[in-house]
Simulated scan of single mutants.
Amino acid sequence: MTTRHSGTVFIVDDDDDFRDSMQWLLESDDLSVQSFSSARDFLSNYKGEKGCMLLDVRMPEINGLALQQIMLERDIRLPIVVLSGHGDIPMAVTAMKNGAIDFLEKPFDDEVLIPLVQTALGKATEMFADQQQQEQVRTLYESLSRREKEVMALVVTGKANREVAEELGISPKTVEVHRSRVMSKMRAESLPELVKQAAQVIL
């Protein structure tokens, strides 16, 4: 039995009949669906909801590959299942290389779609949790003072308190105090954990 996951399925396809058919099929399985006839329509209406996307690669104006690139640039994180006609397989393969999780060649068996969508929604849940965790780390980092950020940047490179003190022109005791505050404010229980956090916020 397929595990059920929550989230919205975004269908982006310029074929009205196909789009309506997919929406009916997915909604009949109690899935939340939003459908769009173009990439521009999707970009104008997407509000950051968790979900996945069924994306036709061949569309007028902005095709599926171009939309995928725009989503990357705008940090829109949706697992994408690419929909392609027989002649569009090379485009679908390119989309897979660019991060799409799977592709379906039209026409396809309806029974294949639901499990694939559930897999994509499961991936979306993981991505959404990761994104929330990264946002929390950024928020914690912004709570640090300028000096604490300086100390953190040096500590995560492996420098000892004495070396940090020499570089910043302060005493090792002061470094120790700042280091303790950094660990507390970042809610890091160990230096390796702080290093992982730093990788997300310090360029």
Rank of each mutant, 00 (worst) to 15 (best):
L116S: 05
E135K: 15
A92Y: 06
D16Y: 09
Q132N: 11
E142A: 13
I70F: 08
S184D: 13
E126F: 12
V33C: 08
I11A: 07
I202V: 14
Q133Y: 14
A66K: 14
V175F: 00
T3H: 05
F36I: 05
S44Y: 02
M152T: 11
F10M: 10
L191T: 09
S145Q: 09
K123R: 15
L26I: 09
I80P: 06
L203I: 04
T157Q: 15
E148L: 02
H178Y: 12
F42V: 07
G64F: 05
F128P: 00
V57H: 05
D15G: 03
M91R: 08
A188C: 11
S21L: 14
I11D: 08
T157E: 14
V177A: 01
V117Y: 02
M183Y: 07
I76D: 03
D130A: 13
V151E: 05
I76T: 02
F10Y: 14
K106W: 10
L104G: 10
M22I: 12
L144E: 10
V177W: 03
L54I: 05
A100W: 12
R162H: 07
A160L: 10
D29L: 01
V182G: 08
D29V: 00
F42T: 06
F103A: 10
I62T: 15
V112R: 14
D102K: 14
S37V: 01
G158D: 04
L78D: 08
N98I: 00
I76N: 03
S143W: 01
L116K: 15
E111H: 13
G158R: 04
S143M: 11
D29I: 00
T3F: 07
V175D: 02
Q69E: 15
F103R: 13
I114C: 03
I80R: 01
R19A: 06
A188P: 01
E150P: 02
R181M: 11
A160H: 06
L55P: 05
M59W: 06
S180D: 10
A124T: 08
K185M: 08
R58I: 07
